[in-house]
Nucleic acid binder design. Structure first.
Lengths: 209, 209
DNA sequence: AGCGATACTTAACGTTGTTAAGTCAAAGTA
DNA sequence: TACTTTGACTTAACAACGTTAAGTATCGCT
């Protein structure tokens, strides 16, 4: 039955068109400022059509979110990652930050808004879980090699994650010149990564409160 | 002319009622989920009345934002602050985090959404600027006393700020049990503060890449 | 030729932020 | 006392939004 397959393909095609148009519009104008009608106009279909492919606006954005996580995961895995776990954490952090600042509107939706999708993201082998696993593995290795003090792996992973997340979140929220004058990005990102990283290394052990 | 003053006072009274009702509703249900009509209902006025006191919803929220910054500033200044600048940064960080997690919806609006108010917040002696100045001063002292390596004061201040912001932002965005299983709050916050702080202290200087 | 399914559209609903026009009591003026 | 003015507040409506009920049209199958 080649006919059913062709129909399937055509339907999938429209679904893909919706996702692509929505992706571009969301990134350009931000999630709240893009209407279902605008997405429909962009692909020259009626607004109702979208509801035949996605349950509602949230479901559309959730689908978009998962595909963005694939991209994040790919960006973090791009090229040969350093074998030294600490260097690898550095590289992961830079890639993560670059992704966030290149796609601020998607980043905002992925990490800065509440959404039902986060309830499903924990299950099994989802794209969000894969991104996190990349960092977690590096932390495990760093501890195994005695570079990081042994501690709760997830706690340390999330200290690192929240550190870089804080920078990205601030930079994309406060535009240059606004309160409170966030300095040029690269400097702040590097400084933040280094500060958090140095704080976790074993070097120190005595002499601090 | 006592009459004009009484009228002034009565008008100010309605304005205050609006702000109080909006404050409670926003904190309970979140900014996007509270309608102008709901605020009006809560104080038993028509929705249009709000527009005689505030230009629009954004202006109402901006006013709310500034009064929240007063509270944040007060929370950070509460009680005698440690004289040791590093201890003071610790205390400021804890107060900041406590404020954010107690008022997640206001925190979200203050630090996690774009808004025009951020253009005005830079000018002169606004509440946001005062909160930031508290941290900045501690950093200056820490450098003067040789506890922090001398560096760009704003860069270091913002490394500290973004560190704690990252934790608060993640914790209030991802509810317990959601991706990726953020551990109990106090542990993560303390760990993050300590990691960033240790990373900035002068102790190390040799032996790292 | 007629039937059924399915992909899509038209038209509408209720809710939102916002505004134009009107009401009405109190203050000022004669 | 009677008339005007002022200004705080309301009623009624607007356009735009997410969403849905109902209908149309196209295609494959019998």
């Amino acid at each position: 039955m080649g006919i059913a397959e062709r129909k399937e393909r055509e339907k999938e095609d429209v679904r893909r068109k919706i996702l692509e148009a929505a992706h571009d519009l969301f990134e350009t104008h931000g999630y709240e400022n893009v209407t279902m009608r605008a997405v429909a106009d962009a692909i020259e279909y009626s607004a109702t059509t979208i509801y035949h492919h996605f349950e509602n606006k949230d479901a559309l954005v959730e689908a978009l979110c998962f595909s963005d996580f694939e991209k994040l995961s790919a960006a973090m895995n791009h090229g040969p990652l350093p074998t030294d776990p600490v260097d690898r954490i550095r590289a992961l952090g830079r890639a993560y930050a670059a992704f966030g600042m290149t796609n601020p509107n998607h980043y905002r939706f992925m990490f800065m808004t509440a959404g039902d999708w986060k309830n499903h993201a924990n299950e099994e082998d989802t794209p969000p879980a894969r991104s996190y696993a990349l960092l977690r593995e590096a932390v495990v290795e760093a501890m195994d090699q005695g570079l990081f003090r042994k501690d709760d792996v997830d706690l340390v992973s999330q200290v690192l994650w929240s550190g870089i997340h804080g920078v990205v979140a601030l930079v994309i929220t406060f535009k240059p010149g606004q309160f409170p004058r966030v300095p040029p990005r690269p400097g702040l990102i590097e400084a933040s990564i280094e500060a958090t990283l140095h704080g976790l290394l074993v070097i120190r052990k005595e002499g601090l409160h």
